[in-house]
């Protein structure tokens, strides 16, 4: 099978990946709260949308209005992409509610129903880029590692077949170097991007590192990352002692 690439629009990142992420791959975006996961995902969606690729953003942790009002601060964000339906932002909690899933723990049936709805939406909207923010909040409701594995695996396979590239965000405690809360998400993902920080002269510098990317010859160098109104920008991290 030959795959095309899916550009994020973040120059250095795409360059590292040989132009972009393999189309149809599932990438875990790992970072603690405030590390820029949501921004990275949005930039990924918007960049696709500007090229006519439809995208969907499933949010669990942040309410819709908060998410969009944060996005307005970025120059890359274009309200019209949402208005014309190129990007659809979906509040997963409403889906939970509509499925009657108000319990904290889901049964296998619940999980399948949820997976089904996410798949249906991806199909209906014919998206090429999909984000779930965060997979951690979702996994929290699944009762076992097997269920988590099954969920991510099935979702990934379905989306890969649809040539839809997927970003899943994974929330970890600050100052830790693990990739996921449940220790399982990272094994199913094709790629892992780690958003961390390093200390320099008492200041914290945001970093981004491609930890793993199946089928791509990438380096594991760390990038310094900045989040400004222009969104995420990268520059090779100067070596700190």
């Amino acid at each position: 099978m030959t795959f095309g690439v899916c550009e994020t629009g973040i120059e250095e990142l795409d360059a590292q990946m040989g132009g972009g992420f393999p189309v149809g791959s599932t990438i875990l975006i790992v970072g603690s709260s405030g590390s820029g996961k949501t921004t990275l995902c949005m930039q990924f969606l918007v960049n696709g949308a500007k090229k006519g690729e439809k995208g969907v953003f499933f949010t669990i942790t942040e309410p819709l209005f908060k998410l969009t009002s944060n996005l307005e601060k970025f120059e890359f964000f274009d309200r019209s992409l949402v208005d014309d339906g190129t990007i659809t932002i979906i509040d997963l909690r409403i889906i939970f509610e509509r499925l009657g899933l108000d319990a904290e723990k889901y049964t296998v049936e619940d999980t399948n129903a949820l997976l089904g709805v996410i798949k249906d939406i991806a199909k209906e909207l014919n998206v090429k880029r999909l984000v779930i923010d965060s997979i951690t909040a979702l996994c929290y409701r699944l009762q076992s590692k097997e269920m988590i594995r099954d969920f991510i695996f099935k979702l990934g396979t379905f989306l890969a077949a649809k040539e839809c590239t997927t970003f899943l965000t994974s929330e970890i405690p600050p100052k830790t170097f693990i990739f996921s809360q449940y220790g399982i998400e990272e094994f199913i993902a094709d790629g892992i991007i780690f958003l961390g920080e390093v200390e320099r002269g008492g200041d914290l510098i945001r970093t981004l590192q491609i930890v793993k990317m199946r089928g791509v010859d990438h380096s594991r160098i760390k990038y310094a990352m900045s989040i400004t109104s222009r969104g995420i920008e990268l520059a090779p991290l100067l070596k700190t002692r």
Binding site: L64, F65, T88, I89, D91
Partner: peptide, 9 residues
């Protein structure tokens, strides 16, 4: 459903 979930309310 999509309309409701992306309604922003």
């Amino acid at each position: 459903l999509i309309a409701e979930c992306s309604g922003g309310k």
